[in-house]
Amino acid sequence: MRDPISSSNGADGRVSPIEALSEASRAYGAIDVRSAHPRWGMAVDLERCVGCWSCAVICKSENAVPLGLWWNRILTAGDDLDTPATDEHGDPHLHWVPLACQHCDDAPCEKVCPTSATYINAEGLVLVNQDDCIGCRYCMAACPYGVRVFNWGEAEYPVPEGTGMVATRPVGSVEKCTMCVHRLAEDQVPSCVWSCPAQARIFGDLEAPESRLVQMLESRNPEVLLEEKGTRPKVSYLQPRRRRPIERSES
């Protein structure tokens, strides 16, 4: 079975905390429907996202992402994190783009990997087999979204033993969002989806028409990033329906 990340689940003697969850929490995180051959996807509702970075932080702890690396981060229009762009009235233009791997159907990173360390699994997820990665970073050059990170040296964690429910990655290899494939195996949505306080992330099976994800994609105005690059991402962004709900009264 070529799913090293999910199969190494529970490495270092760690037990998935999902088992320890209460019934209610488990139910909250359960995947709504799953077809016979699921193709996992996600939508981020930009109308709901408040740019709080909860998903970015829980991703780090869920997946033992070392200090200095992030699999998921929140981009902002504007010069810097604390200086958002302003609109024509000089008001802050509060607009966030949570960005992690887009799990492209036509993934440039997968095509260029010389050893097939980067591969697409049966459920459409783009994953890295750490055993085969030689650290050439070709995939990083090929990914249009800049979501892959490299293990530049011995990993450091905020707590010495590291956090995370998955095996850590070796020095010299590339890593990125796995869509929390280890949680999917336990029928739970990814950590970032589960933890979003604004419920801005919708996870589901793109092959199941009755899934909330597919319904949201049909009823809202989904966009994918850099559509013109032809990567066919499985992560979509739902555009806000009204940018300026309250008309500014000119005085």
Binding site: K111, C113, P114, C133, I134, C136, Y138, V171, G172, S173
Partner: peptide, 26 residues
């Protein structure tokens, strides 16, 4: 000069053992 660029040069042989034919590097 490809060798020092690899994060894990000790695994460079994987390129020969399991070449991925869509990769221009191969």
């Amino acid at each position: 000069s490809i060798l020092p660029d690899l994060g894990r040069p000790q695994r460079a042989w994987k390129m020969l053992a399991q070449p991925h034919l869509t990769s221009p590097l191969v």
